[in-house]
Structure formats: structure tokens, C-alpha cells
């Protein structure tokens, strides 16, 4: 396992895998600028699909709905999931094993069952289908993603760090805020990112609980694909990709800035 010797093959493998992962995205981007409606051959550069997209009010509304939903369900889930993970991995109560099963159950259960089950549940509660049911519904898969990430991180941490903080006289809240939370923050962030991605991506659950009037972006896309896709969707995807890259860049910068601060603080201490 000589690192230098195998390096070139490793890089080739890495390259091939990323090529396959990004090929569909490349195709979508390329065809979003295609003049022709058929996504088969590139006939010429054109921005006509972008114009059509922005003129489509229903599509813009769906996009807005999806963004609101993604952010809200992510925030709500980050709170519930992080508290749940800390509670689960730091307590030794009798029903802990059961809770752990339950905590990942939503990921074990097919989305389609979750969607149908939520629909039946909300129907039983007489909740009006719309943004509220979507928000509650999306936490069902957002929370576990965050919880798993945070829990994995907590398990790798030294529990004595928290004990040390308590021994030094920090209250439980302070220990959580100043010791545990900063330590698990990277996991909270990466879990939330994944959860946001899932929320923006979700069709199956949403389609059961969105109600007749409200449409999220994936639902809009799903109905369009079923009735034959217009390249408008490709244009939309390209914009979303650009937004994603920008969001990641912003996130990365944030992390870098706060990371720098932490180091400074350590030096001062």
C-alpha cells in the first residue's frame, strides 16, 4: 500500500467516479441552453427556456414554496434532532434501546408508506393540507438525518470533556452551549445540509400531503415529467445548481471565518 505508487490509479478512479456522478448534471446544463425542444441533439445556443421559466408564475411560486419549506423544516429539525441526539447518547435510561430504534425508523420505512401514513394521520386530525402539513411532514425525514450525524459525532467524542466542564462548575445549560454544541456543530451543519437537500428533493411524501392548491418544486417537476418534460425544467435545474454552489461557497466561507475565530480564542485562553 505504497501511497505514491498507487496515487495515479486512485486519481483516475476518482476522476471516473466523479465523471459518472456529474454526467447527468452536465447533460441537464447543456440541454438547458439548447435551441431545440428535443433533448437529443444540440442544435444551437439559446436562452429561450430561461425566458419561459421566469415567465412561468406557477413555477416561481413552487420554487418559493420549496425554499421556505426547506429552510423551515431544516431549522425545526436541527433543534429537535440535535437535542434528541444529545439526549439519546448521553442518557442511560431503560427505554433507550427502543428510542434508538424509533429514531431511525423514518429512514427504514419506505417514503411512500410515510407519505400515506401522514396523509391518513392528518386526515384523521382534520388538519388542512398545505404548508403546515408539509412542514410537519418533512421533519419526519429531516430529523433522523441530523440525529444520525450528530449522534455519530457524539459517540466519537470524549465524554470526559463534558464531565470536566461540569467539574469546573459549569451548569448543564452552559456545558451544552459551550462544550457539547460547538463540538457537534459540524455534524449539525452537515446533517442539516443533507436534510435540506432531502426536503428540496422530496416528491413522494409531499405529494400525499401538499393539498390541492399548494405545489412544491419537485411536485411541479414530477407532474411535468409525467406529461412530457419541457427544457424549461433543465433551465430550472441549472439555476438551482448555481444557487447550490453559491450556498456552499457561502457556507464554506462562514465555516472558515468562524474556524479562524475559534483558533484566536484558543490562543487568547
Amino acid at each position: 500500500m505504497n501511497v505514491r505508487k498507487s496515487s495515479i490509479w486512485e486519481r483516475i478512479y476518482l476522476g471516473i467516479m466523479f465523471l459518472v456522478m456529474y454526467l447527468p448534471i452536465g447533460v441537464v446544463i447543456a440541454f438547458s441552453f439548447n435551441e431545440s425542444k428535443l433533448p437529443v441533439r444540440f442544435t444551437g445556443f439559446s436562452l429561450v427556456w430561461y425566458e419561459k421559466l421566469f415567465a412561468d408564475h406557477a413555477m416561481m411560486e413552487a420554487l418559493l414554496n420549496s425554499l421556505i419549506l426547506g429552510v423551515l423544516s431544516c431549522l425545526l429539525s436541527a433543534v429537535i434532532g440535535t437535542l434528541g441526539a444529545v439526549g439519546l447518547s448521553r442518557t442511560r435510561w431503560r427505554s433507550r434501546g427502543l428510542m434508538e430504534y424509533i429514531s431511525i425508523l423514518p429512514l427504514m420505512i419506505p417514503e411512500i408508506i410515510l407519505g400515506m401514513v401522514l396523509m391518513a394521520f392528518f386526515y384523521m386530525l382534520r388538519l388542512p393540507f398545505g404548508m403546515l402539513t408539509l412542514l410537519i411532514g418533512h421533519t419526519i425525514f429531516c430529523v433522523p438525518y441530523i440525529l444520525i450525524e450528530v449522534k455519530a459525532r457524539l459517540e466519537g467524542l470524549d465524554p470526559f470533556l463534558e464531565e470536566a466542564a461540569r467539574d469546573m462548575g459549569a451548569g448543564p445549560l452552559r456545558t451544552f452551549r459551550d462544550v457539547t454544541l460547538p463540538l457537534v456543530m459540524p455534524a449539525v451543519l452537515s446533517g442539516s445540509l443533507l436534510a435540506f437537500a432531502m426536503s428540496m428533493d422530496d416528491v413522494v411524501i409531499s405529494i400525499f400531503i401538499n393539498g390541492p392548491r399548494l405545489s412544491t418544486l419537485p411536485i411541479k417537476v414530477y407532474t411535468q415529467i409525467k406529461t412530457g418534460v419541457t427544457p424549461e425544467i433543465n433551465a430550472l435545474c441549472t439555476i438551482m445548481l448555481a444557487a447550490t454552489v453559491l450556498a456552499f461557497a457561502a457556507w464554506y466561507l462562514c465555516k472558515k471565518l468562524t474556524g479562524g475565530k475559534e483558533e484566536d480564542e484558543q490562543q487568547v485562553d
Binding site: F31, V40, D201, M240, L241
Partner: peptide
């Protein structure tokens, strides 16, 4: 990060893109 970015693209769209790639006249 590069591994997760494709997950951000709607699954339907990625699947649709594969349809274009694999189709008989794709």
C-alpha cells in the same frame, strides 16, 4: 462536498438526465 452536490439536484431531474443519456436515440 463534491460527492454531496449531486444529491442537491432533484432526483427526478437526475433520473430524467439518465433517460436522455440511455435512450434509444440518446
Amino acid at each position: 462536498l463534491l460527492v454531496t452536490i449531486p444529491e442537491w439536484i432533484n432526483m427526478l431531474l437526475r433520473t430524467y438526465a439518465w433517460m436522455n443519456i440511455l435512450a434509444d436515440n440518446g
